[in-house]
Write a protein that binds this DNA or RNA. Structure first.
Lengths: 203, 203
DNA sequence: GTCTATACTGAGATAGAC
DNA sequence: GTCTATCTCAGTATAGAC
């Protein structure tokens, strides 16, 4: 009873490509200016279409931002899955943080939309976003517990604390300040952040 | 040639009290909803005066937010100065972080206005704010160098990195998430944050 | 210096032609 | 489905009476 794979018309392909382009532009602008400062006009200009056309693809600014965040979470899950599973859990967590920080430094939106209370609120009632977030958090949470079982996490720190801290590092303004300072390379910034996160600032 | 201290009229006292009340309300709202979401109407309502009256005290929303931030920086300098100076520098830094986190947990605006690119931009051209920030940063920077001289800071981390990281912890969303979670007391949250910041999450 | 009422602007969203 | 033009509304800031 297998149906042949639906063949996509040229129109459909074009449509999806444009939609990807919209998501890319929004992701960039979101990471750059933040949610409030990013206008639908900005996005339209960046993509090279009219503002009105955006609304044929996404019903609102909130929905558009939500789609960007969902895509990011799914990309993050993929990145997590791609990390070799034969390493100790703590190293996999470090690798994941390294990946997210690199993404952020190359202009992506932070995982935690902490720059905007408005966006945060709207995401809370976005079914698709919350599902993705839960799934990813479960996967990370599992890895945290494994790392703890391997004795690699300080006993005094709670699981939620570790999880939230990892998320929070992706929107840490230290990143932007150091990048703006210009004295450190992206790689060096990532290394200091990861190192400080796991091993602390004190000697 | 000493003049007698200027005696303040009842009117003047009232005026200053009201101004303090405005700053308090703004500080609360800023910490709660963020800069963009906080309207001048909100502030007026919270203080119990008309919106128009706000503009007799502060010429714009930006100026008002700036005044709040300057006051916060000065309070922070006072807190820093109040820490016993006979302790090792690293402990004084920890104590300062503890103070700022406690402030934040009790509703104050974070030191880094990272929630709003708009506010951040306006503060950059606020002479008074920048002066306060420089002064405080110099004082903290000096303490970082002392801690480093005492061998208490990891050699691989740059001074700017340590400074920015301390500032960034005051706007760390981990704080709000843990508080919202309700499973940890304010004191416990502060302790885990300080501990993780200086000694890391890894065992 | 406080109030009420209002002007002005930016931006999200929609209408209607093609 | 894309465009141009427009609607609507929230929110900053100001005017003018008292």
């Amino acid at each position: 009873m297998n149906l042949p794979p639906p063949r996509k018309s040229f129109r459909e392909t074009q449509f999806e490509l444009r939609e990807e382009a919209i998501l890319d532009a929004t992701n960039r602008l979101l990471g750059d200016k933040g949610y409030e400062a990013m206008s639908m006009d900005d996005i339209a200009t960046e993509v090279g279409i009219a503002k009105g056309s955006l609304y044929k693809h996404f019903e609102s600014k909130e929905a558009l931002a939500g789609a960007v965040m969902v895509r990011l979470l799914e990309q993050t899950r993929a990145a997590l899955a791609a990390i070799p599973s034969d390493r100790p859990a703590i190293e996999r967590l470090e690798a994941l943080l390294r990946w997210t920080l690199s993404q952020r430094l190359s202009g992506s939106v932070p995982h935690l939309p902490s720059t905007s209370p408005a966006l945060q609120t709207s995401l809370m009632s976005n079914r698709e976003y919350m599902d993705s977030l839960m799934t990813l958090s479960d996967e990370i949470g599992e890895m945290i517990q494994r790392a703890r079982a391997e004795g690699a996490i300080r006993a005094s720190l709670r699981d939620e604390f570790v999880l939230y801290t990892l998320y929070a590092r992706t929107c840490d303004p230290t990143l932007e300040f150091l990048k703006a300072g210009g004295a450190m390379s992206d790689a060096e910034i990532v290394e200091q952040m990861v190192s400080a996160c796991f091993r602390g600032m004190a000697a």
